[in-house]
């Protein structure tokens, strides 16, 4: 989320740019006054940023699939981010002019809050639209804060699998139901982003050094979970279930070559749908798509 923006020094610009997409912009847009709509927002900055994000997503999922390496070589990937963040902390602290003890206080405050957030334990929560709305607004706040990831907050609130399964419904016969369930989440995210960027931009305008010091603290607090050497435990979410023939080609193939389970997503055989069928040929079996997500990690010194 906000980590990279803080590291490369565009954090303040990012927050102000997000904030510039306000109700006036929406009003101009729906009344087709496009030039007026564009004049009030930081569209050049956002277009370049979004183009960068989009090409990075393509590059790091299709060409260098980071999401796979995070599961197969976690030490290398987490090490890379650990080094990146340690270096950035030093550079960012040096950039704060006239570092004094009161800066150290804000950095410590941020570190404590950051550490507290990244070591929270998942809690069971309600699936009412109101709570889903709230989850969306909290997760988006985490997304714009450095050191804390939005998807991690969803895990803590036990809404990650819920949102994922609703997104999985899109494009199937349950599209309408999925959309209806996601709607409170999206509305929450928009509301959260609008309110939180206003708070952050006010803080950056009035207490710039203190705010940046707390944000650097968040980065320091997050080092605990970024440390490359950890005992990691994962939770598996079934995102898709398909019923196939028990003796069919795909089922046989999976029995002969069991799937690699240290991948972020893989397909494996589930339960037999009709175990009482007379012949194996009549039986049907579930083919499930499993998504793995890191839920707990305990750092150790190698």
């Amino acid at each position: 989320g906000g980590t990279m923006a803080l590291i490369v020094g565009i954090y303040s610009r990012l927050i102000h740019a997000i904030k510039s997409f306000d109700t006036r912009f929406v009003k101009d847009l729906v009344t087709f006054r496009f030039s007026s709509a564009l004049s009030g927002v930081h569209w050049r900055f956002m277009t370049v940023l979004l183009a960068g994000i989009f090409s990075a997503i393509l590059f790091f999922t299709k060409i260098v699939p980071l999401q796979v390496y995070m599961f197969t070589d976690p030490e290398l990937i987490y090490g890379l981010f650990f080094g990146l963040i340690v270096g950035s902390i030093v550079i960012l602290l040096k950039a704060l002019d006239s570092f004094g003890w009161w800066h150290a206080f804000y950095v410590l405050l941020g570190t404590l809050i950051g550490f507290w957030v990244v070591t929270l334990v998942p809690a069971d929560t309600s699936e009412s639209p109101l709570f889903v709305f709230l989850s969306g607004s909290i997760a988006i706040c985490a997304m714009v804060l450095p050191g804390i990831s939005g998807s991690y907050i969803l895990l803590i609130l036990r809404k990650y699998d819920y949102i994922l399964s609703q997104v999985g419904k899109l494009g199937t016969v349950e599209t309408a139901e999925g959309l209806l369930m996601i709607l409170p989440f999206v509305l929450g995210a928009i509301t959260g982003l609008a309110l939180f960027t206003r708070l952050l931009s006010w803080l950056l305008d009035h207490y710039y050094v203190q705010t940046i010091a707390v944000l650097i603290g968040f980065l320091i607090g997050s080092l605990y979970v970024i440390w490359p050497y950890q005992d990691r435990s994962y939770e598996e979410f079934i995102t898709e279930t398909e019923v196939i023939e028990y003796t069919g080609e795909r089922a046989m193939e999976l029995r002969e070559n069991p799937p690699e389970t240290n991948l972020p997503t893989y397909r494996r055989l589930g339960e037999v749908v009709n175990p009482n069928a007379t012949f194996d040929e009549l039986k049907q079996i579930e083919l499930v798509t499993v998504k793995k997500k890191l839920v707990k990690s305990d750092p150790f010194i190698p």
């Binding site: 590291i7 070589d73 030490e75 090490g79 890379l80 650990f82 080094g83 550079i91 190698p302």
Partner: peptide
């Protein structure tokens, strides 16, 4: 995989120092 973590951390540090230098 002690070495992997070390190599990763070094690459990360070099990247950020390089960026700052530029």
């Amino acid at each position: 995989h002690f070495g992997h973590g070390l190599i990763g951390m070094l690459i990360g540090l070099v990247m950020v120092i390089g960026l700052d230098f530029l």
